[in-house]
Design a protein around this nucleic acid. Structure first.
Lengths: 342, 342
DNA sequence: CTGTTAGCGCATTCAA
DNA sequence: TTGAATGCGCTAACAG
């Protein structure tokens, strides 16, 4: 563990010179000493001490990535490729920029504030932050922060978010259903929060219905349970009363695929007896039969965009757009029945 | 950002006393000052500076979790629930112990050594380390290290690994096939390394065949491509020559499910025309029809076990068992044809 | 172009 | 039971 001072001694120069070499302040070092110091740096295998750097600069090269969720075991989240894909994208991007990724799961905003302080985080990425807590965080963290898939209850001033055009996604799914002659649907939401992606998607559905002069009652918005046994019970209920649910519009491919399997196992045919749609266009929508009609989103790109924006923020670049909405794309497979004339 | 010194000033004591309170050295502080200092600590919202702690103690509370793989985009890995499940387990466990998790992806051992140094890591978890590089790492890192699903080319001295009873898993799958009268198989491996989980599983298959007086040629071990287009081509080849492949014994549910879908889409019936088995017992084996006969492993438990062992190492406890092999369990579903008499 | 120096916040040893 | 002093390795301002 060679230190700068040791390197300086070996090279016969001062620590400052070594530091200048290290930081590429080439203008301040003569070419010959530069080469000399560089050689010693390599031969001594110099490894910087991040603790010292943090202390001196009051800033670390750590990006804190915080997943906002109950910090307990949740099979659904762990098995959904969303989290691993976006994590993988962020990790790669953070590494490319010479930063390091620290991961933390919580649903407590104070914990996030503490984390940012103790580690002097270079920046934070906050995933799935509920509207109510996002404000607290913004007010208590004076470091670059980028939100992902978060919604806010105030008008977009002073925050940066990488989201999805959820409303449009819901709209496209619903319009597709209507085009195919399916005028009844139930929206199966991932979460219950009042302001968030799920509601935006549902609102999109409502818009499509409105355009047709139809309306979609708020009672058609149903949160689905995180508990697999309860979900099973729900699917059972659906199986016994297909007509009243109409098309099952899931807000996640994972649940849509699960439901499809359950219903098929109980002798119900998709899409003949019931139509099902998903959201995400991930592996689950491709692995079931019939393939799921769903809405595509580029999760990997979302992770890249988040880090890219965070890096700009860290560099002090000004950013005009503060709430990016990545585009969605309807993917038609075979899980929706065509009841239209033809 | 209150510092110890500031707290000390406010409390009218010395920094040392505050430090003692912070570290629970209650024997060295009078009850009254203890309470007093604690109150100020809380009211001032004291936040430790990890940089300073790292510097002073020459050790951080960061656990480095390193995934050994080519650090480039790999859909397969990102979509497989293995990585997100084990990550989730480790994150929860690390947090519970008051540590922090830093994630890094690489296939370069020198990078790992550097990381351990610059961050004065409290410990490391290395996942999927090839036999050839594990030695280099052990020789160059003087911190607690726990390997996960790694194999070694020397006899197990001086390392700690949480693995799986891969050989037994392969054995149970093959024995099941033989019991059902399927005497021909091809093993589809995830990787090509000579020493590793895949070969152990294949060896298990060989053992089962031996017991029956049959043999399994090394040519029956086939690595499967990471590229989805190439895989597709492979499945196509299989479809055209079912008999010569025999049962398709995949080393991952993900691929098994994918292959099953492809074959079914091409009019091939599973298990009537061909039998398929998986490995892992994850969501993919449950979501396809017929369900995949597979080998169960407790991935979440694997992550917990790794951190639990690492924490013991960090505390300096001596550990007797150094290469833990978690148990496997055969899960019979419907993807293997019964050709036996009955 | 190069060197000196004063902190950054905390742990720890030694005095009191 | 409490406090003063030192050093961890590095940065950055300043002096030469």
């Amino acid at each position: 563990m060679a230190t700068i001072k040791q390197i300086a001694d070996k090279a016969g120069v001062s620590p400052t010179t070594v530091s200048n070499v290290l930081h590429g302040n080439i203008g301040k070092v003569s070419p010959s000493t530069l080469l000399h110091v560089k050689a010693i740096l390599k031969s001594e295998n110099y490894t910087p001490n991040m603790g010292a750097i943090m202390l001196a600069r009051n800033n670390s090269r750590i990006i804190g990535v915080i997943m906002f969720m109950e910090p307990r075991r949740d099979e659904t989240v762990l098995e959904d490729p969303f989290s691993s894909t976006i994590m993988g994208a962020m990790e790669a991007e953070i590494r490319k920029h010479g930063y390091f990724m620290m991961i933390h799961t919580t649903s407590d905003e104070a914990e996030v504030v503490r984390l940012a302080g103790t580690w002097r985080l270079g920046g934070l990425v906050l995933v799935w932050v509920p509207a109510t807590t996002s404000r607290v965080i913004r007010e208590n963290i004076n470091r670059p922060v980028v939100f992902v898939d978060s919604y806010f209850d105030d008008d977009g001033i002073g925050y940066h978010n990488i989201g999805l055009d959820d409303e449009q996604g819901g709209y496209e799914i619903a319009r597709h259903l209507l085009t195919k002659g399916n005028t009844s649907m139930t929206f199966l939401a991932n979460d219950t929060v009042a302001i968030g992606a799920d509601h935006a998607r549902f609102n999109g559905c409502c818009r499509a219905f409105s355009e047709r002069g139809l309306s979609l009652s708020e009672s058609r918005y149903m949160p689905i349970s995180k508990d697999s046994v309860e979900r099973r019970r729900f699917y059972h209920r659906v199986a016994g009363d297909l007509a009243s649910f109409g098309t099952l519009v899931f807000s996640a491919d994972y649940y849509a695929a699960e439901a499809m399997m359950y219903l098929q196992d109980n002798g119900i045919h998709v899409p003949e007896d019931i139509s099902i749609t998903g959201f995400d266009d991930n592996v689950f929508s491709r692995i079931v039969r019939p393939g799921l009609t769903t809405v595509h989103q580029d999760v990997y790109g979302k992770g890249q965009a988040a880090i890219s924006m965070l890096m700009k923020l860290i560099k002090g670049e000004t950013i005009t757009e503060c709430d990016v909405r990545l585009p969605v794309r309807l993917i038609v497979r075979g899980s929706v029945r065509d009841r239209s004339a033809g």
